[in-house]
Design a protein around this nucleic acid. Structure first.
Lengths: 191, 191
DNA sequence: ATCTCCATGTAACTCGTTACATGATTTT
DNA sequence: AAAATCATGTAACGAGTTACATGGAGAT
């Protein structure tokens, strides 16, 4: 620990960024793309949230970026994690889990769906089915490519962690899809 | 629609409250309890969020509450949904799904876990295993009691909607638990 | 009478999203 | 040169959490 004084705790997003940078340097825009859609990471954020977070991380000395050449050149800052950053990330992984509340809008809609026509509910579910089917296909494609191209590292490696989260994504989508299809069948047959 | 003029859209929490009230009148505190832990509804909120939302809902005429007797009596307002409220809820269920980003802190920790010792990761996962096992037990108990006590209404009924969300909860916890256990095994055996 | 809990409400602050702004790079 | 796009940033606002405040009900 190089910095002194009591600093306020960092938001979870900061650790999501550190987790990305622990795999190698990235620019803000690259992080933005990786945090856009549910890739293996399961933590979404917009660039408008990312850039201020990068400032705070740099201020703490958890990340650094060589100044982007001379003024006049296009500024494409590339950040990398510091040893303090890795230490902070390591400490956070083992820290007590925060009581983060989880919300699921589709579940809520299904819970409320008994007040509306069956057609509306089925339409809602068909939309959800498409979304989850597409996402599952995406995940399966990712897993296939990472299996064939290179070896899957041993447990404890970065590539294994990638695979573990991806595996959970596949399991989630499969379970969700099965449930949606069961519900559609139930509503249509009236059983 | 009785109200005129362009009013700002209501937050999802408002519809969660309407979904609860569509099943019968409740007080603020009762809603607070139902929105506390992940019961079949999957939408959490604190009382400090609920009471202002109730004011807004009443202002719109989507819920009503008979004034609580004379002043001097303990104020325990009981709210009930209006016909306009049911109509609003019905419209919301069929409305296009909002692009709500989903975040999963356990997944993020696993994604980052390769920077720390295996013991720490396994400890994190064991905690998660306990949490999910307890929750699964809770859900299974709920399902068992609702199965034996009264008949499970037909698809389209409120009791069926309750059961459908509960069923998804069970599926989610089972899938999550299987994944956590697979990950623990993998880390411990090093396979 | 006092104390504690219950029920409702308010305030302050952080997190997160949408929209706006700026300049540099590439395209037409 | 003008237009579209990329990359970074800022502003305004809404959503959500923690902490504080109020007053009645029941217990000792």
């Amino acid at each position: 620990m190089t910095s002194a004084g009591r600093l306020p705790p960092m938001p979870t997003l900061a650790y999501a960024i550190l987790a990305l940078l622990s795999r190698g340097p990235l620019t803000g825009m690259e992080m933005s793309h990786k945090l856009r859609d549910p890739i293996g990471l399961y933590w979404e954020a917009r660039h408008s949230q990312i850039y201020p977070a990068l400032s705070r991380l740099a201020y703490r000395g958890w990340i650094t970026s060589p100044e982007p050449a001379a003024p006049g050149l296009r500024p494409r800052r590339r950040y990398e994690i510091t040893v303090d950053g890795v230490a902070a990330l390591r400490a956070w992984v083992g820290s007590p889990p925060s009581r983060r509340s989880h919300r699921d809008e589709l579940l809520l809609r299904v819970y409320a769906s008994w007040v509306c026509d069956r057609d509306v509910t089925v339409g809602l579910l068909r939309q959800a089915e498409t979304r989850h089917r597409d996402r599952l296909q995406d995940y399966l494609a990712r897993r296939a490519s990472s299996h064939t191209s290179r070896e899957l590292g041993p447990p404890g490696s970065a590539t294994f962690a990638d695979y573990a989260t991806l595996r959970r994504g596949i399991g989630f989508e499969r379970g969700r899809l099965a449930w949606v299809r069961w519900l559609i069948r139930s509503l249509e047959t009236g059983a």
